[in-house]
Amino acid sequence: MAVTREDVVKVAKLANIAIDETRLDSLALELNAILGHMDELRKVDTARVQTAEGLGSGGQRLRADYGPPDGLASAPATFAPETRDGFVLVPRLATHEGSPERAP
């Protein structure tokens, strides 16, 4: 299962990391080299292994339905890159580029 340059492009897209064109081939090589070692695992017979999902088989501890939550020493506006009126702002989504500004 060799990782191709196209795989790197696809995975980088999924991971939302811009990768320089010039790095694509070397990254494919690096990932291949690492994954090559992983192929070792194919030797292990796991047909009858019951995979436990997560550690701790006793089930998860649940929380009662009341507050207060763990507090914040400062409001989001103090650490978010851009805020207005309490909202966190981001560049407008591509799907809504055409949205007009609502009349005040």
Partner: peptide, 22 residues
């Protein structure tokens, strides 16, 4: 979006994601 580094790009939100993380 909510904290830490933000790098804006001409490519809108997706550009922001990709450049910030890169």
């Amino acid at each position: 979006v909510r904290y830490g580094l933000r790098v804006l790009s001409e490519r809108g939100l997706n550009g922001m994601y990709e450049e910030t993380r890169a």
